[in-house]
Design a protein around this nucleic acid. Structure first.
Lengths: 226, 226
DNA sequence: GCGGCAATGTCTTGAACCTGACAAAAAGGT
DNA sequence: ACCTTTTTGTCAGGTTCAAGACATTGCCGC
């Protein structure tokens, strides 16, 4: 039972790590942060895909709607994470939406053309961007496997483990995950129903494997959670 | 009920379209085709990821094994299609396997380092490779959505439609898909069980929407299949 | 043409989990 | 502090499909 510890619910590539340090200064001039309020959309499906974005503050939900109106959430991004990077890879119109989840969310947009211009000067940048998209692809493959071939409990447990190693703070054996995600959010991320998330989380609490309230999830022993 | 006609079960990017036409000649010197027999592996998980490959003849199955030994098939590739391109995007060890499905399968390997060297000279090549990986990402997103949010019948029908538009030959209203895929193969590709595939295909045959035998699948009216 | 093996067809059973319904609790605004 | 809305908890009912078992059919090598 070897499980590779890779993350997929949360994204982890910082835009500044992708862009050359010495180029960053140059780009900083263009860094105009846009402010959003809760529930505002950054882009809709079919919008022109001409920017990639980094979250400077707050949370952003990426997803799209099925034919029947049901919302599918691909990921929920927080500070330092980037999105919309498919615009780099030839996507002309958005296929998904990006919606702000908190008030006072601050987003840094970066023009694709500007980035492409940088790529011409900077060969290394091309590799980094290729890696960025490749990393996203690998994560998606893991997500696919979990969502399709594992049962609801495993999906939720894996979600907790991913959250823990990515957002958690370790205190002794315990890992504290501060989160404002509702059970509905977790359901959307794990491809389960709201009720199932509630039930399974309470089962885990019952077994004393985790504790949670509306602000945090506490994992008793990350290594033994499964 | 608008369904975007994008393909995901089968891959569609020809390596020669990615590589500059004038570079192709240069690369041709290095084009040494490797021959494989049925069931041989091209690479295993944890192998060094130092090549990308193109199928020149025959079929190749890409997949991996779950902890419980179950085989997951990501895709089945035929002539002209490429695989292993995650090596370009920073994958150092293979996470999946590539297995040959037919005798007399011919594969053209291309060294990653050679390709990276080409990228330095050729800025456009970087964009093309970025697009290549981006396209794969978009397809995978569609696949994820279908597998997670649609029922077995829809998944199988979508599979048929994809196969038809990608591999099918149109004859009047009818579309003929020559295929050697077994119901087990289709089950693995659609994330269903072998029995379910058999049953649903027979239901579709019953409703006169398709006909099939062990060599082909015939779709009566592609536009009306759903 | 024959034997063996893989693929297909068809049932039955049961588990997983979605859905809808409703109550209780918490959060948030004014 | 009060009212409204959101979130959480719990249950019953029903659907979907995977899995196992077994018969039948078709393919392939000899």
């Amino acid at each position: 039972m070897t499980s590779t510890a890779s993350l997929w619910y949360f994204e982890s590539v910082n835009l500044y790590n992708v862009l050359c340090p010495h180029k960053t200064k140059e780009l900083d001039k263009k860094h105009e942060f846009r402010q959003f309020k809760k529930d505002q959309f950054i882009y809709f499906p079919n919008d022109e895909a001409d920017h990639i974005y980094m979250v400077a503050e707050g949370r952003v939900k990426i997803g799209h709607y099925l034919d029947d109106g049901k919302e599918v959430v691909s990921s929920i991004l927080t500070k330092g994470e980037i999105f919309g990077e498919l615009a780099l890879a030839g996507e002309d119109k958005r296929r998904d939406f990006a919606q702000v989840m908190d008030n006072n969310t601050s987003i840094c947009p970066l023009n694709i053309e500007a980035l492409k211009a940088l790529m011409k000067d900077d060969k290394e940048l091309s590799f980094r961007l290729l890696k960025l998209v490749g990393l996203r692809l690998m994560r998606l493959e893991r997500k696919l496997e979990l969502l399709v071939f594992k049962d609801a409990r495993t999906r939720i447990v894996e979600f907790l483990k991913d959250s823990a190693s990515w957002k958690g703070k370790k205190v002794g054996y315990e890992t504290m995950i501060p989160t404002k995600l509702t059970h509905k959010d977790i359901a959307a991320l794990t491809g389960t129903s709201r009720q199932t998330v509630t039930t399974i989380l309470n089962e885990l609490k019952e077994q004393n494997l985790i504790y949670f309230d509306r602000r945090k999830i506490l994992i008793r022993d990350l290594a033994n959670l499964q």
